[in-house]
């Protein structure tokens, strides 16, 4: 915009030959400028993206998330047999891998304050790494349109401190 307006203000065209203009506008502003900016940005994105991946970790907790119209069911590797509906319990301060899948149509698992979203696709298991730094309740939603009940297809995440996480695993009321 800043470049556009002066073009209208000038009365007489400056007598520069076309090839000099090409050097400024096309080589300089058209090619070099965006290339440098974009290369930097992509590199930065890849580094950050790499850091968010579910790499191996020592104190890892694994949970499962099964979506269906319009409900979420969560399971816990540390406590086989236990499932919870529309509430996911995790320990705070530890990396958690959520294994996401779907029983019917495509849904998406999204807890905005903990991580980006990842789709739940029938037949596939996608793994999302989340980590809550502090104990508390976080809102989670399904973020892929799934028909009539889409609006209310939400859940919450309870992040526990070590003591209450232990209590949850033992089966005491959280």
């Amino acid at each position: 915009m800043a470049l556009l307006l002066p073009a209208f203000r000038r009365r007489e065209p400056r007598a520069a030959p076309d090839d000099r203009r090409q050097r400024l506008w096309l080589w300089g502003l058209g090619l070099a400028f965006p290339s440098v900016v974009l290369a930097t940005l992509t590199g930065y994105g890849l580094v950050v993206g790499e850091r968010l991946l579910p790499h191996a970790a020592s104190d890892l907790v694994t949970v499962t998330a099964e979506a269906r119209q319009w409900e979420w069911r969560f399971g816990y590797a540390d406590r086989p047999g236990q499932t919870t509906e529309n509430v996911l319990h995790i320990p705070a301060g530890r990396p958690v891998d959520v294994q996401i899948t779907s029983l019917d149509v495509i849904h998406s698992f999204w807890v905005p304050r903990l991580a980006g979203k990842l789709d739940a696709i029938p037949g596939h298991v996608n793994v999302l790494r989340i980590e809550a730094t502090r104990p508390g309740t976080y809102r989670g939603l399904s973020a892929e349109f799934s028909g009539e009940g889409y609006l209310g297809h939400t859940f919450r995440v309870e992040a526990h401190d070590p003591a209450s996480w232990g209590a949850f695993l033992r089966g005491d009321a959280p």
Partner: peptide, 15 residues
């Protein structure tokens, strides 16, 4: 970007 700047450059070139 090349196209956009070619167009802006055209504006600068003309009146």
């Amino acid at each position: 970007a090349v196209q956009i700047f070619a167009w802006i450059g055209t504006l600068w070139k003309g009146r």
